[in-house]
């Protein structure tokens, strides 16, 4: 394709008038400018949020990310607890979402006949189409009540156990970190599944056929011929899901509610960077507003690092396939 597009420019066509060449140049310039808008917007994001976050970051210094003393009225902004809350919610989400997504991806690519696979894909699209705010509403006001009893059982059983008690003990609440994690899991299943499917699709059918012909069961064929080749792609998919889960805002905000709280107990109300921003930004002013924007900057950095690593992994596994 690049060869063709280069040709009209290098081989001066016979009798091509100046105005026609101008048309091509202008069009190319317009499309290039549109592409560079992406660069402009990213630059503006960094500059604009960074400069508004600076007062809070400058005032609190490194303590902003190393202390968990978050008392906005007293001017104490230690966001460590919020970062922890963001990570723990996302990790819980991954624990539920990864086995589910990989299972569904295998179901669609390896097990289901074509028509069933199409139906499953449509249903997953439906899952992805439900807006975040609707997930949050349902989780906070429908799911929270019945699920609280299940939490209480787990909490009663594990509360006395030394290390597990720190995470699973205490009073179990329906609108808790665990519920947020479960909802995030449901929300990231479609994207992780779709990327895992892309990874699985890169393994040639002949590899599977070879393993099956040697007498392997379907599971053994997957383990021997497929899994070793898709590991990178699937890890990348999982990390993109992690980035998505960390940035997810409204569902988590509705589930956890407005009071910023830092806790290790997964069955209690906690807070994430995104939920605190969404719930407090309206009423905040001065330093508090700046601190919330700083939370946004930290969230942005966290997701960018994770997403870039994930993309690099996905790209590497794709490139290995081409080679």
């Amino acid at each position: 394709m690049t060869i063709i597009s280069a040709e009209p420019a290098t081989v001066e066509p016979f009798g091509l008038t100046g105005s026609r060449r101008w048309g091509d140049r202008a069009f190319r310039a317009v499309t290039l400018a549109s592409g560079l808008v992406v660069l402009l917007i990213l630059g503006l994001i960094a500059w604009s949020t960074g400069s508004k976050a600076w007062p809070a970051l400058h005032h609190t210094g490194f303590a902003f990310i190393t202390t968990d003393d978050w008392v906005p009225n007293a001017g104490h902004f230690g966001a460590f607890g919020l970062i922890y809350g963001t990570l723990i919610c996302a990790v819980i989400a991954l624990m539920f979402a990864v086995p589910t997504s990989v299972g569904i991806a295998l179901f669609i690519t390896e097990l289901a006949p074509a028509r069933l696979a199409r139906t499953a894909t449509t249903l997953l699209d439906l899952l992805a189409a439900v807006p975040s705010v609707v997930y949050g509403l349902w989780a906070a006001y429908v799911l929270a009540t019945p699920i609280q009893h299940q939490y209480q059982h787990v909490s009663d059983a594990l509360g006395g156990v030394p290390i597990l008690g720190r995470f699973f003990g205490g009073d179990a609440q329906g609108r808790s970190i665990m519920t947020a994690g479960i909802i995030l899991a449901i929300m990231i299943v479609p994207i992780v599944t779709s990327l895992a499917r892309d990874a699985l699709a890169t393994v040639p059918q002949s590899d599977r056929a070879g393993a099956l012909a040697l007498g392997a069961t379907r599971w053994e064929a997957l383990r021997v011929a497929v899994f070793p080749r898709v590991r990178g792609g699937i890890v990348g998919a999982v990390m993109l899901g992690l980035g998505r889960a960390m940035g997810e805002t409204i569902a988590v905000a509705l589930i956890l509610g407005p009071i910023p709280q830092v806790t290790t107990h997964v069955f209690s109300q906690g807070s994430t960077l995104a939920s605190v921003i969404a719930l407090n930004f309206g009423e905040a002013s001065g330093d508090f507003k700046s601190a919330l924007i700083a939370c946004g900057v930290i969230l942005l950095l966290l997701t960018l690092v994770i997403n870039s690593a994930a993309r690099a992994l996905v790209r590497r596994s794709e490139r290995r396939l081409e080679a």
Binding site: L42, I45, G247, I277, T303
Partner: peptide, 30 residues
């Protein structure tokens, strides 16, 4: 149609991937 696998096109492609990872709440703050 123009950039193909060139350096500018690869950069724009990469930045567009980066941009799709920006959380929606951060876009609101921006």
């Amino acid at each position: 149609e123009y950039g193909g696998k060139g350096r500018i096109a690869s950069l724009v492609r990469f930045l567009s991937e980066v941009m799709s990872g920006v959380p929606s709440v951060v876009m609101g703050l921006f």
